[in-house]
Design a protein around this nucleic acid. Sequence first.
DNA 1: TTAACTGATTGCAAATTGCAAGCAGTTGCT
DNA 2: AGCAACTGCTTGCAATTTGCAATCAGTTAA
Lengths: 176, 176
Amino acid sequence: MDQPHRSGCPINLTVEVLGDKWSLIILRDMMFGGTRHFRELLGNSQEGIASNILADRLKKLVAQGMLTKADDPSHKQKAIYSLTEAAIELLPVFAQIGAWGSKWLPVSEELSIRATLLDEGGWPMWQQFMEELRWEHLGDPVGAPREDRVPVREQLQVAYLEVMRRKGRQLDEQPA
Amino acid sequence: MDQPHRSGCPINLTVEVLGDKWSLIILRDMMFGGTRHFRELLGNSQEGIASNILADRLKKLVAQGMLTKADDPSHKQKAIYSLTEAAIELLPVFAQIGAWGSKWLPVSEELSIRATLLDEGGWPMWQQFMEELRWEHLGDPVGAPREDRVPVREQLQVAYLEVMRRKGRQLDEQPA
DNA sequence: TTAACTGATTGCAAATTGCAAGCAGTTGCT
DNA sequence: AGCAACTGCTTGCAATTTGCAATCAGTTAA
């Protein structure tokens, strides 16, 4: 194990791991979109990643300990990717980045509603979401589905659909 | 103004602006190191950025509204770079990234002490630091130096030097 | 006059990216 | 049995980006 790192600074090391145009996008889709398979990631993202780049990044993310890869019992050729604890704990980073981006960059309303909600939800919501991700990806029973709370990803998705519905109505009422 | 963006997602847009190997490093050095000039940034960083990359990134960061550029009165050819409010408000992002990197990546103790301290200081410390940055870079009097508090950058620097001093002593006591 | 310093630029090789096509194996449908 | 759709992933190739070294013209202090 050599250390070809530019420096031991935590900011720099994080940039070395996640500082490219696609790694965070992949983790975002797994975290907030619940995607676990290659083709899902290839097709479901807004940004349209190329298959060779996706393959390369998945390999690197596994090597870096951000993801694990396992066989999917339903299909002998299918691989299922899981977030590691390290990746799950990126949630606060995502939340801060989302809040910052929503404030300072030209985001679309329907795609920023999740970030806004996650920001407003604060630590309690982040904690719940991380528990749910640990259930999905690590099998930790603490985050198992409960009747007394709606899963965070579902809350965010509902809000997204609500914005889309409202925008659709506005388009109907005020056609160009 | 066209929008050649991959998507309107806040995470994606932030990646488009800051998702490369050098932009965050430059902002880090300006924020935590207090560097404001080209040559300072070129020579003071741990990672050793090349001058053409630095010039390119500074240009982009100015175009993206993360930095402003002004003449330095002391030298007709000297430029002084300032953080904008948008860049200053990246502090919580830096704090979260620093905390995450310190936990999950092979950081060196002396370079992660700042991140640890900033994490422990929480919002009150972040607020104070942002006020001080607004004073330095935007001239906002709210963050002007006060006798009743030590500037955050100085607190972090003192802690860094303390770690270095301690490690130096350990080296003296247990020579290889 | 001269040496050091200012923010850059240039040339060039290497690495990375992005696009399109293709691959071998698996599965489900008929 | 046969075939289309789907699985993760590879390959070829052009365009872009990166990183290194050298260099530049103007400025300043000695």
